[in-house]
Amino acid sequence: MPSRDRIFSRIRHNLGRGPLEGEAAQALKARIEGHAPNIVPKRTNIPHKEQVNLFQAKAEALAATVARISSFDDVPEALRDYLTAHNLATRIKMSPDKSLDSLPFDKTPMLEIKRGAAAPEDEVSLTPAFAGIAETGTLCMASSPETPSTLNFLPENHVVVIKASQITGTLEDSWERLRKTYGAGNLPRTVNFISGPSRTADIEQTLIMGAHGPRRLHILIVDDGPQD
């Protein structure tokens, strides 16, 4: 008997029944398609403005840094200021995403912008986010040809641009947004939830930042008004 059959027959034998059919199977299918939320913490039942503040506070508590800017036009300068303050390279690998096409990099001629997936020599990446989760200060990143997920991990410094309107309360809110964008039952190839920069405590339980992923995570929140 092939292993698949053996496993299923053992499961069913030990549960004392045959394959689920009819109503029983329908109920489980409906449970999946209904994807009802379980208990969701009330922490984020607050106005959107406060959710954005909570997102910032939680992200900072995770050792990410956050800057608030008033429009996309301010991104290049905010990026330049951040890189200068940390004495970092000015060569940037940026997601080939159209949301970043119009950034006015002519204002910051010292920044050298390349677009594409991450290469081992890239030191700084600039990416958009799919959503932000106020509950835990977590970024939700969805992969696509325009938003390659290697940019989230390979460079030592990761700078993320997110609109305030993309920040929501809970994990469940991102699932709903993803379903709206990609259709029920579908996810982009990779969905990364990122809560602060990389870290390890594997040597004598001492917390060290920058284990394998980015040492620094910098989040630029564009205050574009209410939630979309």
Partner: peptide
Amino acid sequence: ATGQEMSVYTTFSTGPKRMEDIDG
């Protein structure tokens, strides 16, 4: 496990790279 609210990276992987993907 560690008292964190979320671990730093939680990743959902769905299938191989898609047709137009440039990594994965």
